[in-house]
Design a protein around this nucleic acid. Sequence first.
DNA 1: AAGTGGTCTAGACCACGTC
DNA 2: ACGTGGTCTAGACCACTTC
Lengths: 245, 245
Amino acid sequence: MKEKILENEQYMQITEYIIEKIEDGEFKRGKQILSEHKLSKMFEVNRYTVRKAIERLKKLGYLYSLQGKGCYVSEKSTFIDYPVRSRGNFSDNLSKLGKEYNNKLLSWELADPSHKEKKKLELEDDDQVYKLTILRYVDDEPIAVYMTVLPEKLVPNLEVHLENFTSLHKILKEEYEYYPTCKNYSIETTFPMLKDILRLNIPADFPLFITNTINILNSGDPIEYTIVRIRGDRCKFYMDFTDKS
Amino acid sequence: MKEKILENEQYMQITEYIIEKIEDGEFKRGKQILSEHKLSKMFEVNRYTVRKAIERLKKLGYLYSLQGKGCYVSEKSTFIDYPVRSRGNFSDNLSKLGKEYNNKLLSWELADPSHKEKKKLELEDDDQVYKLTILRYVDDEPIAVYMTVLPEKLVPNLEVHLENFTSLHKILKEEYEYYPTCKNYSIETTFPMLKDILRLNIPADFPLFITNTINILNSGDPIEYTIVRIRGDRCKFYMDFTDKS
DNA sequence: AAGTGGTCTAGACCACGTC
DNA sequence: ACGTGGTCTAGACCACTTC
């Protein structure tokens, strides 16, 4: 272990070494690996160095650790497919996968739009907006935070329909007869802020997707501007261009 | 600084504190911030703790550091838009943004397909495939690594056209009269492996996009199966459903 | 030579899980 | 009581940049 892959980066050698062990099957899926203390003795390095290697292996998805118990080799994880398409929505897809999902309305307010929201939703000067924050669970695990902004003039008295919230699109359909379609969509990746960490219950160094989307009505009027913050370790985006729905 | 946001996580408090300073404009864009040594004295913590905060701030895109010089507040970064659509390609979009790009063929081989490649490309038992590895630069900065697999039977003698490589789709068009369209597309996010770190010249803890796509011919036959590994800190994906191209 | 960030050692205390 | 991972301190050496 004493030659160097990159200069002065023993933790990188240890990382690659452990990956090999996992892929060779020597460290078995689901099984506990050696403790940090034992690994640091084995590699003759400080625990700090082993921890940096393990930190990276966790972020790469090879390992996960439980405080007080130990560090384990991950099972092959199943990603939740997030479909991207003009029409249709998330729930259609999930039922195909046999997964349960539900939404929880964290908060709502009727407020003045920010400059950006005003522009995205093509609003006049005095228009107000509803701002909803929704937490989405899949199999009872929090997966994504939705921050949706809707023009008040298009969804008057929205708050009346927010009791026993299950789905925004259900409300739009059943109460307003709106069938929004996606105008555009963007996907970035970063890391969770403190709010995301608490809401999604993820470590600070896990990747996060951020999507921006504007949905419009048949008339072309923007009905919602939504920013979604999605667990990057559990989800993937999927587009099927043969699907004509 | 002595109350706790999360338990035993002083570095998280320092992170949030510095973010405030940046967003308030007290730490100015492009300017150097205090050294790690000075910050650790200021917050009365060890340098390790300050470094963890700075590590996080770098990953969040607020800071960048130069060895021997110091740590600076990032300018607002401009993302490279990666368009996703059935037809059309990357280069159209970039020329709109006024960016230069070019490709470099790192390697190619004619080989047996893996099990997965065989399935994705709907190959017979004896079919071979060309495997190309291409590095894409934007403004002379490496941005993405393409690993493309093509059935040999559809692009016979491909190697003849690989001299002075500029673009695979140019070869497909000019030499084979193929105009591939995208069948499906997926996007995940993880972290770079050693190869990515060296090729894309990024730190180990920067986020990476991984896309999978299958392109088909008009006949419906799969022509390429491509895995792309893209810098997540510099790129975003963009879909426009009003664009009918 | 002095200052900076990058890496690592040695050792400590804590929270948590198992026994 | 003990082992585990999570956090932090104190101090060291290195590579790099600036002077």
